[in-house]
């Protein structure tokens, strides 16, 4: 049996952390892109489109992320689409992230007074001009803090990808535990690494919230 020194354990965990970060980034970028598109569609005020977006949001918010991952990974391969654990993890995390971001951003846009839209209309701005010059600049200020805050959920969500066999931080932790039988040490380290990733983001989100509150 191979002996693992503390150094070996830490080195392996840190190496795996790279994959956790990469998966989080991919999910966040994917989720943001999809959420932006859906938010823009929602704003067109077409009832059919709004219903579709609503169903999308409720579907992915109302089911466990793990089930979504299973469906993406096992479900798609049963339908004949080969998909890697990496692909399935990104896909399901994108669904998950976008469903929440659409709701967060909807709230941010809705907090802007209706008068902003009306004043823009009365000045002759088109819908897209209103969005670009009036609504988005204000909504982005309001939305930044909760969006950064939510990225913490995405990072923690990536841990579930270990279940479908994607080798990231949690998965390597499990593997090391199987080899060393030192669960307390290993999972404490794993948790600590997640904390180091997430805590600065939480702090940053709080900082942003304060900053924008003062200027309003």
């Amino acid at each position: 049996m191979i002996e693992f020194s503390n150094y070996d354990i830490l080195r392996n965990l840190l190496f795996a952390t790279q994959w956790t970060i990469l998966l989080s980034l991919a999910a966040f970028i994917g989720g943001t892109t999809v959420a932006l598109t859906l938010t823009a569609l929602r704003l067109t005020r077409n009832p059919t489109i709004q219903r579709i977006v609503k169903v999308y949001v409720e579907l992915f918010q109302g089911t466990p992320l793990l089930m979504q991952m299973f469906l993406c990974f096992f479900g798609l391969s049963m339908l004949g689409y080969e998909i890697s654990a990496w692909g399935a993890a990104i896909l399901s995390l994108t669904f998950f992230t976008s469903a929440f971001l659409v709701e967060i951003w909807r709230g941010c846009i809705d907090t802007l007074p209706k008068g902003q839209w009306e004043a823009s209309r009365c000045l002759g701005l088109s819908f897209l001009q209103t969005l670009r010059f009036i609504i988005l600049p204000q909504a982005i200020r309001v939305a930044t803090a909760p969006t950064v805050g939510f990225s913490v959920q995405v990072i923690k969500g990536t841990a579930l990808a270990s279940v479908i066999g994607f080798v990231e931080l949690t998965k390597v932790g499990t593997m090391l535990n199987n080899a060393t039988f030192e669960p307390f040490k290993i999972f404490t380290l794993v948790a600590l690494i997640y904390f180091v990733l997430c805590y600065p983001l939480s702090l940053y989100s709080k900082h942003l919230e304060k900053k924008f509150n003062v200027s309003r």
Partner: peptide, 30 residues
């Protein structure tokens, strides 16, 4: 909008723009 101007009870100025930018916006882009 080119012939009718509207003033609201709650002003509805654009809070993220300066006074000057508020007044200049529509003439510039419309």
């Amino acid at each position: 909008a080119l012939s009718v101007g509207m003033i609201f009870q709650n002003f509805n100025l654009f809070p993220h723009m300066t006074v000057g930018e508020n007044v200049m916006l529509a003439p510039t882009i419309v």
